[in-house]
Computed example of a mutant assay.
Amino acid sequence: MLFDKICRRNGIRHRLTAPASPNQNGKVERFHGTFRPDFLDEAGPFTSVEQAQAAVDAWVHGYNTDRPHQALNDTLPVTPAERFAAVPTEAREVLPLWLPPALDAVTEPARPHEDHCATDESAVEPPVAPPVAPPVAPTLGRQPGDAVELERVVGPSGNLAIRGQQFWLGPARVGQCVRFWIDCDMVHLSIGGTRVKTVRSHLSINDLAILVAHGAVPAGPPPLPSTLEPDGVVELERAVSRFGSINLGGRKVLIAEILGGRQVGIRIEGQTLMAFDLDTRELLRTRANPLPLEQLRGLRGVRPAGPPLRPSTEPVTVQRRASTEGVIVVAGQKLAIGRAYAHQTVTVHVAESTVTVEADGETRVFRRTSTKPVRSIKGQRPRTATSVS
Score class of each variant (00 low, 15 high):
L2Q: 10
F3W: 14
C7R: 06
R9L: 09
I12L: 10
R15A: 12
L16M: 09
A20S: 14
S21N: 11
N25F: 07
G26T: 05
G26Q: 04
K27G: 13
K27T: 13
R30C: 04
G33M: 04
E42L: 12
G44N: 10
S48R: 00
V49L: 13
V56N: 03
V60Q: 00
H61W: 14
D66R: 13
P68S: 07
N73F: 01
T75N: 12
P77F: 05
V78E: 03
P80L: 04
A85V: 02
A86T: 12
T89D: 15
P100G: 03
A102P: 09
V106Q: 14
T107G: 14
T107P: 12
E108I: 05
E108C: 07
H116F: 13
E121N: 12
E121I: 12
P127E: 04
P130V: 11
P131E: 08
P135T: 01
L140W: 14
R142Q: 11
P144A: 05
D146N: 03
L160C: 08
I162F: 01
Q166W: 14
G170A: 03
Q176K: 15
F180W: 00
S190G: 03
G193T: 05
T194V: 11
T198Y: 02
T198K: 07
L203F: 05
S204K: 04
I205V: 09
D207H: 12
A209R: 05
H214M: 12
A216N: 10
P223S: 02
P225H: 08
S226G: 15
P230F: 00
G232A: 10
E237R: 11
R242G: 10
G244C: 05
L248P: 13
G249Q: 07
G249F: 04
R251M: 12
K252R: 15
I255R: 03
L259C: 10
G261W: 05
R262H: 12
I266A: 03
R267D: 00
Q271S: 13
D279R: 15
T280K: 10
L284G: 02
L284F: 03
Q295A: 11
R300H: 08
P304G: 12
A305V: 02
A305T: 00
P307K: 07
P311C: 06
S312E: 01
S312F: 01
T313L: 07
R321V: 00
S323L: 00
T324E: 00
G326E: 01
G332W: 06
L335Q: 01
L335Y: 00
I337E: 03
R339W: 00
A342H: 01
T345F: 02
T345M: 04
E352M: 10
S353Q: 13
V355M: 09
E358Q: 13
G361E: 05
E362D: 08
R364T: 14
V365H: 03
R367S: 14
R367E: 13
R368K: 08
R375C: 08
K378Y: 10
Q380R: 06
Q380H: 09
T384W: 15
A385E: 14
